[in-house]
């Protein structure tokens, strides 16, 4: 039994320490966004954020996560109150089948946390580990750029409100 902090909530997990985070998220916590794609760290569908960094949840055992903060796509926002990156992907219609998209968004989100104004080349380099089979790449790139702009605006408005 260990405590796992996901999307700000503490969960008591009854699973072996070698259980990959992906299965805990999907099976124990009933979260949908992180997807099983290969289980081998080759495709990025299972990407989540751990302590601000993009992590492949299919090859990240529970034992590594004691005391860390896990964020999944569900933790960013909802349909009615979407996070900037979610809004950006909706506005750009950046999905076809969408199976890879949650992983793409989480890796992009980690990039934007670290680098709020990435260049196109930086976005491409960052997303290199993640595969998309429908060929939605152009839209994904546009959506990440849009998310960066939205976050910038959101930050600005927060700063205005707080009088900074």
């Amino acid at each position: 039994m260990m405590t796992l902090k996901v999307n700000g909530q503490e969960n008591h997990i009854d699973a072996d320490p070698d259980t990959p985070l992906l299965y805990v998220l999907r099976d124990d916590l009933k979260l949908n966004a992180a997807k099983f794609g290969c289980g081998l760290g080759q495709c990025g569908s299972c990407t989540v954020i751990v302590d601000g960094k993009a992590v492949l949840s299919c090859v990240t055992p529970l034992v590594l996560l004691e005391g860390k903060q896990v964020t999944t796509l569900e933790g960013l926002g909802t349909v009615s109150a979407p996070a900037p990156i979610q809004r950006a992907f909706m506005e750009e219609q950046a999905a076809q089948c969408g199976y890879c998209i949650a992983g793409m968004m989480m890796r992009a989100q980690a990039l934007l946390l670290r680098n709020p104004k990435p260049t196109d080349a930086q976005i491409r380099a960052e997303l290199q580990p993640n595969l998309c089979r429908c060929g939605t790449h152009m839209r994904i790139l546009r959506a990440v750029h849009r998310a960066a702009r939205l976050m910038d605006t959101a930050d600005a408005s927060v700063n205005e409100r707080s009088g900074q």
């Binding site: 949908n32 997807k35 999944t72 998209i101």
Partner: peptide
């Protein structure tokens, strides 16, 4: 179908 897919809804 896209809103559920970009927010972790049950889509699949």
């Amino acid at each position: 179908d896209i809103p559920a897919k970009v927010t972790g809804g049950e889509a699949y």
